[in-house]
Amino acid sequence: MIDFDYVRANDVGDALSQITKHQAAKFIAGGTNLIDLMKEDVEQPTRLIDITGLPLNEIHETQTGGLKIGALVPNSDLAYDERITQRYPLLSSAILAGASPQLRNMASTGGNLLQRTRCLYFYDTATPCNKRSPGSGCGAAEGFNRMNAILGWSKSCIAVHPSDMCVALSALDAVVHVSSAKGDRAINSTDFHRLPGDTPEIDTNLARDEIITAVELPSEKFARHYSYLKIRDRLSYAFALVSVAAALKIEEGAITCARVALGGVAHKPWRVPAAEQSLVGELADRKAFSSAADIILQGAIGFAHNRFKIELARRAIVRALEQAAAGTPQSQSVKVIV
C-alpha cells in the first residue's frame, strides 16, 4: 500500500477542482472497494479526496414522477427507503442481494457504480492483467476464469462488472448525473459502463475529472412484476455467477413492456433490446421467456471454467421472468428460490 495524502472536499466545486489539480487523486466515499484495492497495490492514488461531506445524500422526487438519488446515499439507506421499496422494489432487491449489511452501510450509490471487477488476476499484482496494468496480458483467459465473462469480452479482458445494484439500474433505465468543471451531463445507466475492447483499464464512460452527483430513476417503476435473481456459489456475500433483473408490465396476460438485465456475465450489465422487444405482445409464459433468453445469449462464448454460465444464464433468465410474471419476486432474506 502506497503512501498517500488525504483531504476533504467542501462541496462539489471544491471536489472537482481538487481532482483536476491532482492527476493521481481519487475520490473516496465509503471506500469499501477502493481501500481493499489500495491494500493490494492494485489502486495507487497518491491523494484521496474525501467527498462524504458533500450534500449528496438525499433522495428527491423528480418532476416527471421519478426519484433522484444523491450519489452519497448509502446502499442500506437506499435499499430500505420506503420510496424505493414501494415504488422500485427491483432496485431494493438487487442492492440487498449484494455484499453484506456492513458493506452496504458503508457503500455509497455513486461508489457502487464504480465498483471494480473481482477478476482474480486484476486483484493479484503478481499476475498479468490488462485492466490493472495495460499491455501486461490477460491472466484470466487461460487461467482460472470461472467468474469471468461470457458476453461482450475482448481479447484483452474477460472481466465482469461485479455490482448487483447496477444491474437493476440498467433494467430500470436509470440515468446517472455527473458534473465537471465544464458543466453537468446525464449518462444513461446502460451507457455508463463500457465493454473492455482494447482499453479494459477504463471501466466506465465517466471522465476522470467528473463526479457522480445523482442517479435518477424514471417514472416507470415495475413495482408489480419484477424479480432480481442472483445465482452464486454461496447464498450470501458472494459475487454473482449470473444474476438477472427482470421487469415486466402485463395487461390481460400479455406483456406490454419487458426489461431484462444480466449481471455477472459481462464487463457491464447486459441488456439486449431485441430480446425485450420480442416479449412485447407475447403471453407471459415459459416459451416466450425461453425465446427471449436465447436472444440475450446469442453470441455467448465461455472459457474453460465458465461455459456452464451460458446455460445457467438461460435458465436464470427464464426463472426470473417467471418470478416477475407471477408477482413472486425472489426474496433476498429468505434465500430459497421460488
Binding site: 473481482r118 482474480l120 488476476y121 486483484y123 493479484d124 503478481a126 499476475t127 491472466g139 487461460e142 487461467g143 482460472f144 467468474m147 456459489d233 454461496r234 447464498l235 450470501s236 456475500y237 458472494a238 459475487f239 434465500k335
Partner: peptide, 23 residues
C-alpha cells in the same frame, strides 16, 4: 491454483468461500 504461476488465486475471504449464515 493457477499452475502457470504456481499460485493460489482466490486468496481472500470474498473469493475463498466458507459458509455464511444463509448457508
Amino acid at each position: 491454483i493457477d499452475h502457470r504461476y504456481g499460485r493460489f488465486m482466490n486468496h481472500n475471504l470474498a473469493e475463498y468461500h466458507v459458509p455464511v449464515h444463509a448457508d
